[in-house]
Design a protein around this nucleic acid. Sequence first.
DNA 1: CCAGACAGTCGAAGCGCTTCGACAGGAGAG
DNA 2: CTCTCCTGTCGAAGCGCTTCGACTGTCTGG
Lengths: 336, 336
Amino acid sequence: MVTLAEVAQHAGVSASTVSYVLSGKRSISATTRQRVERSIRELGYHPNAGARALASSRSNIIALMVPLRTDMYVPVMMEIAIAVATTARTHGYDVLLLTGEEGPDAVRRVAGSGLADGMILMDVELDDERLPLLRESAQPAVLIGLPADTTGLTCVDLDFKATGALCVEHLAGLGHRDVAVIGEAPAVYERHTGFAERTLDGLRSRARETGLRLLHRPCEGGYDATAVTVARILDERPDTTGFVVQNEAAVEPLLALLRQQGRAVPEDVSVIAVCPEQVAVQASVRLTSVSLPAQEMGRHAVEQLVAKLDGRGGDEVVLLPPELTVRASSGPAPVL
Amino acid sequence: MVTLAEVAQHAGVSASTVSYVLSGKRSISATTRQRVERSIRELGYHPNAGARALASSRSNIIALMVPLRTDMYVPVMMEIAIAVATTARTHGYDVLLLTGEEGPDAVRRVAGSGLADGMILMDVELDDERLPLLRESAQPAVLIGLPADTTGLTCVDLDFKATGALCVEHLAGLGHRDVAVIGEAPAVYERHTGFAERTLDGLRSRARETGLRLLHRPCEGGYDATAVTVARILDERPDTTGFVVQNEAAVEPLLALLRQQGRAVPEDVSVIAVCPEQVAVQASVRLTSVSLPAQEMGRHAVEQLVAKLDGRGGDEVVLLPPELTVRASSGPAPVL
DNA sequence: CCAGACAGTCGAAGCGCTTCGACAGGAGAG
DNA sequence: CTCTCCTGTCGAAGCGCTTCGACTGTCTGG
């Protein structure tokens, strides 16, 4: 292992000079800098992370807490995680992967040990048990998701309320009057994960404004459960001509069912999904959808956190505006 | 921040004693231990990770390199990653998430800086560019996947060759004579990711032994691509009564196409998938499948690595035996 | 009853880096 | 031409922990 001291000796300067070359915290003459940089290259020097962390009390590590339970669609989590890792690297940070298993203890452990400089929490619940700890430990953190009380917290999320409104607007604009919402699994609502409820909120309030009739049903997803849900919906509201789906596992089953019943999409029935773009594009009918901007969320979260760590920027709630992409699954309501 | 010294003072012992209580590397009397533990609790002491890493040259961190490009089915990666993180914690390690983006440089960086004690590489290609570096840096590592040359390396993977053989055996046993294989995207084969080729190898050699006719076609996945692939297959081999699918994105399209053509599963056509259990169970027909033991792979990888770090166990290639679960998509070949 | 072994504790020396204050020398101002 | 102010560099003091050797008693066996 090559050390700072060896580099210094090789370059004929003091250790502190090498350190300053590396950090740029003091001005160094061009010639000295070059000599040092050359020595670094020749010796293949890599600063020791532990020593650095100890001396500077900065680990250059960001902790990312991903939920263990994964009601949330897994590829989205992964996409966020990758975006976080990639963005973090561009700012000189590495990412520590924490699973939800440890729960709040992980927050304590990471904050206490100085393992990470800050953390990003995914899948935050409305009343998340990690939040009090976070507030009291003064650990710089960014949440992906929106808890009930955001005071003193920095959050990034899709504006799900606007998303709901956008879906209703689109369908209302096409003349639909009866719309059904196939939602996430009941457990998601019971856990108060927020995003599902916020979407519903947006759907409902805009439906009220536009006079659109809305029927919401949670759904486990998968073929059997979706079949039951759709049957109930059509039984209760036979005139339903529009579906909003917020559940990746119900998308394909729904399309299969409609096909099976001879209801053409989009001629007889329009379908809008709130899902990752990939799901919308790869479905058997290319779906009109509001996509989940996973990458953007990850990127934003890191940038907010880095800003905090640099002493810039404070607590802020960033809600990304939803974008609805019209594809082949939505069209004018059929004339009855 | 509470330090070791403060705990020592509070407990009325020396710093080294506290350290030994924590590490258990020397015997400590029960009374002293209790006094120290009490102080630790009362003061809310957490050892500083950086200082520990510096003094002991052990970071208690495992680096996990996940590929950026994700031909491999994403949920599987995530499942492995979570299993790695969870298992690592039970051994006292945290997990650093590295994306493939940095490529081989990441190996250099991590090995050089002492950031991690060892690493786990996912999605290893047959001739992976990270391997030479790994070998020369003497960085303890475990691969998930099987490169062409495994000398000096520890690997964990599903036995894909046996998997292929198992699929053929099952279909041959049911009397099928003409079987088509819908494979991964062409890019996967071109990249020589190994697992696809090894499966094919197993399929082919067992097919030869049992006199079964095998037709293999790569497939991009998605509805359109799968439709083309299936049409070609049936055109070329109209008597095909069995499908082996190794491509999550082709599973549902294939089932939809068969349904559409009036071919009943499993009465007219049998389908076996090589995919995560979840995909097999949630498909529109419950699929007979060989599942990808993601969790087990993650767990194994960590345990191998921890063993290495503890100086136990050496280089080893662990191939997990495949298990075929019969569900509703396979049955006796139709009598012509 | 004493030598040797051993359990239990302490002090001190680092681990490799950052950072603060000090200082030499040159430039600019008066 | 002197005084001040930078710029560029160095030395030394830690950061909080681990670990080695040393020391003190207490046992045990001969």
